[in-house]
């Protein structure tokens, strides 16, 4: 029997229209699960905690899922406990999901809470699972600036998916409509802490401009119009070309941009 991978999906939000859609990273979690299944490394199941009636669930299902389980929850309910129960009941050995939800609090806590409660390690921002051999996975993490890091970890684990992971496959209408949306009734625990919080529509936050703190008018004027200068840089003029190039090369090594 293949070990199980569980992809947890949430309802996303289209950045332009604000409409519901597959969440970018959660879709990638399903995609990764499907790939693992196709490679016969794991068996995929997919679950959502929330409203079973959302048409977005059909979009996830349309990726080729015969069944999608919904842990029925209202908005503002704490989904953690039902999820833990579900993961344990499923005997999953890998849980995949997005880094942050596109709706609601977007705190990114859920995967960490899950991992902690399950006692599993957590891998953040996974780009790719290269292999799983004898229960040990070789995982590529996405780092800033397009960089990648290879990490090896033994199953079971929780992983969050970076946008660098393979994009979710197309959703197909027919299978999506026909998929079995299995509703699992769960006990609901209201999130009383968050109920205290105030939610308001956000205004865009422009990036900070240069801050001119100069006191005098002349200095403010200069600060505004000055050209960027570094000052105090090393200048090699009379050395040989070899020495000059070596200096640059050493600099690059020191800054660790050459490895």
């Amino acid at each position: 029997m293949l070990p199980k991978v569980l992809a947890l999906v949430s309802i996303g939000r289209h950045p332009q229209s604000g409409r519901e859609r597959r969440a970018e990273q959660d879709g990638r979690a399903v995609e990764m699960g499907l790939c693992l299944q196709e490679r016969q490394l794991m068996h995929l199941s997919v679950a959502h905690a929330g409203n079973a009636d959302s048409s977005v669930l059909r979009q996830y299902a349309g990726m080729g899922l015969s069944k999608l389980s919904v842990l029925a929850q209202q908005a503002n309910e704490d989904v953690l406990s039902p999820l833990i129960d579900y993961v344990e009941a499923q005997q999953a050995s890998m849980v995949l999901m997005g880094v942050r939800s596109e709706m609601g609090q977007s705190s990114g806590m859920l995967p960490y809470l899950l991992a902690e409660r399950l006692g599993w390690p957590l891998l953040p921002r996974v780009a790719e699972i290269q292999s799983i051999e004898e229960g040990v996975a070789q995982v590529l993490l996405a780092l800033p600036r397009g960089q990648r890091r290879l990490v090896s970890v033994a199953l079971p684990f929780v992983a969050t998916l970076d946008n660098a992971a393979k994009a979710p496959r197309q959703t197909a209408f027919g299978p999506g409509q026909r998929a079995d949306i299995e509703v699992i009734n769960t006990t609901s625990i209201a999130d009383e802490v968050a109920a205290q919080w105030q939610f308001t529509p956000a205004k865009p936050r422009p990036k900070r401009m240069k801050v001119v703190k100069a006191k005098t008018a002349a200095d403010r004027f200069k600060a505004a119009t000055a050209k960027p200068v570094g000052g105090g840089g090393k200048v090699l003029k009379n050395e040989t070309v070899e020495e000059k190039a070596q200096a640059i090369f050493d600099f690059l090594l020191e800054e660790k941009v050459i490895r």
């Binding site: 960027p228 840089g233 003029k237 070309v241 070596q246």
Partner: peptide, 27 residues
């Protein structure tokens, strides 16, 4: 650019790049 630079070399770029290529290959 030289004024702004943390490290500047005053030389013909082709010569410097040639050595840099070689250093990178050696490295």
């Amino acid at each position: 650019m030289v004024k702004r630079a943390d490290l500047a070399v005053i030389a013909d770029s082709e010569e410097v790049l040639a050595v840099l290529c070689r250093l990178a290959q050696q490295h």
